[in-house]
């Protein structure tokens, strides 16, 4: 047994096994890379070599048929992953604090609003940064915010975001008694394409770029949800939030807003 040479073409086992394997590989490659692609008239390959390369998985750009349709409104051009604010240094936070002086009228001295404008203390830096960018570009329209962000540079926005993210989340101005979690927040409405609010806005999971909602003004939350639903607000990336708000009933919008407002 031990004297038998295995890796030799004269060994019937080696020759058969290797031969059959090679044969199947070659035959299936011929069918898969040449024959089947060429039989697909709709694929529109430029020739045999193009067909083989495409079947092998080489990246191919398809000739563009029609021009891309541009929106007649501004959409966000924030790339969330490349604009992630870096380390929030003490200097950045300090600069942000100075810049934030002009925001106190609406957003409060410590980032806690006394009107129905949003609380910013402890808000995610990325969420603040993105909204500032969108106000500046016109993707998010506000008569109040628009004029105030015109002069802000990217660095200013980073600093402001860092400052507000650094402020502690204090019990907000609006707290009522905490309400039980409504179904729309916890479970959503799957067949209307509404994922649970909490699957992006924290408490179940958090999706980068989405804001922290606890303790916000219910009026503000309802206004924003209605604006998303009508399309009046359209700075969410690829309609992410419009898709949700559109399916929500007025009662659900109210329930979600009141719930988040009641949370500490």
């Amino acid at each position: 047994m031990s004297s038998e040479r295995l890796f030799s073409l004269r060994n019937r086992w080696f020759a058969t096994a290797a031969g059959v394997t090679a044969l199947i590989a070659v035959a299936s490659a011929t069918v898969g890379f040449v024959w089947l692609p060429l039989l697909q008239p709709t694929a529109g390959f430029a020739g045999l070599w193009d067909a083989i390369c495409s079947a092998a998985g080489l990246v191919r750009a398809v000739p563009v048929a029609e021009p891309v349709v541009q929106a007649n409104y501004k959409t966000t051009n924030v790339n969330l992953s490349s604009k992630v604010p870096g380390n929030s240094s003490a200097i950045s936070i300090g600069r942000g604090a100075t810049l934030a002086m002009q925001c106190t009228m609406c957003h409060g001295a410590r980032g806690l609003s006394e009107a129905d404008s949003p609380n910013l203390a402890g808000q995610y830096a990325l969420a603040i940064f993105k909204q500032l960018q969108d106000y500046k570009s016109g993707a998010r329209i506000s008569a109040i915010m628009g004029p105030r962000v015109v002069t802000l540079t990217d660095q200013d926005m980073h600093d402001l975001a860092a400052y507000y993210a650094y402020l502690p989340r204090l019990p907000a101005y609006h707290p009522a008694t905490a309400r039980p979690t409504p179904r729309i927040v916890e479970s959503g409405a799957p067949m209307r394409n509404i994922a649970p609010c909490a699957s992006c806005h924290g408490s179940i999971d958090y999706k980068g770029g989405s804001p922290w909602l606890e303790g916000e003004s219910p009026v503000y939350l309802m206004t924003q949800l209605n604006a998303f639903a009508s399309g009046a607000r359209h700075n969410d990336i690829s309609q992410q939030m419009r898709n949700i708000a559109r399916g929500m009933s007025p009662a659900e919008i109210e329930a979600a807003a009141l719930y988040y407002a009641s949370q500490p």
Binding site: V68, Q70, N77, I237, S238
Partner: peptide
């Protein structure tokens, strides 16, 4: 990262 900024997958082209 940039689907929504330019190219065939911007929201108005979907």
């Amino acid at each position: 990262r940039t689907l929504h900024i330019a190219g065939e997958f911007i929201e108005s082209n979907l």
